[in-house]
């Protein structure tokens, strides 16, 4: 059974169609990459999977572990084990990072009885793996974080909340070379039968570390090509032009 199954998904915002029939299946343990030009709908797809209320799903379905999630609020989806690492994480003034994460942790694992102290220990150990200092977790959520720090903070949240499926929306953008490696290694350590990921990126570098099982190309709200790492190689070498042309020809032939 697919862990995540997206079928013929159409979504719009303010009456404008952004997703125009997405089909995507992710099995347990798989890592999928999604590449695609700016504005093609990658973040929109992430947001719709996570349940952002500002997008309206007009057609299609999303199921997670066989369960239809379209009617579920984002917090319920999170508690099922979905996670989104944001392309642009939001700042919350006055809200301590660790206080926030503690609340999130308890929401995600209502049955785990963890003391503040044990939580702090756990957080510290995970933060260290990302070379983040304990001072960092005492700061206000994303406030004044540099671009790269925000991305690392997203991954730290991911590591604490142990999702079954993580969507990384351009987590690699803004990370320096060493941080990118650290982040990729941290994600790789999570890999196993109980962890799947959708990695949205513009660059092959992160994929070299993560070795995705499938690479998709998204264009104008559709997945227009899927393949293995060689697809990413081709994009890196020639840009989107040839891949998009081929897919357009392919669709032309279908008609």
């Amino acid at each position: 059974m697919d862990l995540l199954s997206v079928k013929d998904l159409h979504a719009q915002i303010d009456g404008k169609n952004i997703l125009n029939g997405i089909d995507l299946s992710v099995k347990k343990g798989e890592v999928h990459a999604i590449m695609g030009p700016n504005g093609s709908g990658k973040s929109t797809l992430s947001n719709v999977i996570m349940g952002h209320p500002k997008f309206v799903v007009t057609k299609g379905s999303i199921s997670f572990e066989g369960k239809d999630v379209l009617e579920l609020s984002p917090d319920k989806r999170s508690r099922l084990g979905l996670f989104l690492s944001f392309q642009y994480p939001f700042e919350v003034q006055g809200l301590g990072f660790s206080k926030f994460l503690f609340s999130a942790y308890k929401a995600r694992f209502p049955n785990k009885k963890i003391s503040v102290l044990d939580f702090q220990k756990l957080l510290k150990s995970k933060a260290e793996a990302l070379h983040m200092t304990p001072e960092f977790t005492k700061r206000e959520l994303n406030v004044g974080f540099s671009g790269g720090e925000k991305k690392r903070a997203e991954i730290l949240q991911l590591m604490m909340l142990e999702p079954k499926l993580a969507i990384l929306d351009e987590t690699d953008s803004g990370l320096d070379i060493d941080s990118l490696k650290l982040v990729a290694e941290s994600v790789n350590r999570l890999r196993g039968p109980d962890f799947s990921a959708i990695v949205i990126t513009h660059y092959k570098r992160i994929l070299n570390y993560l070795k995705p099982d499938v690479v998709h190309v998204l264009s104008e709200g559709r997945i227009v090509a899927s393949g293995d790492m060689s697809l990413a190689d081709e994009l890196e070498a020639n840009g989107y032009k040839t891949v998009l042309q081929k897919s357009a020809m392919g669709r032309g032939a279908e008609k």
């Binding site: 952002h52 500002k54 006055g94 929401a107 995600r108």
Partner: peptide, 26 residues
Amino acid sequence: DQIFYLTSRGLTETEALTLIVLGFIQ
């Protein structure tokens, strides 16, 4: 968007609002 960010981490909308308000008066 801010509420979505917090609710995507498992907090209910009320919890998210509360944390934002508490942060505001911190």
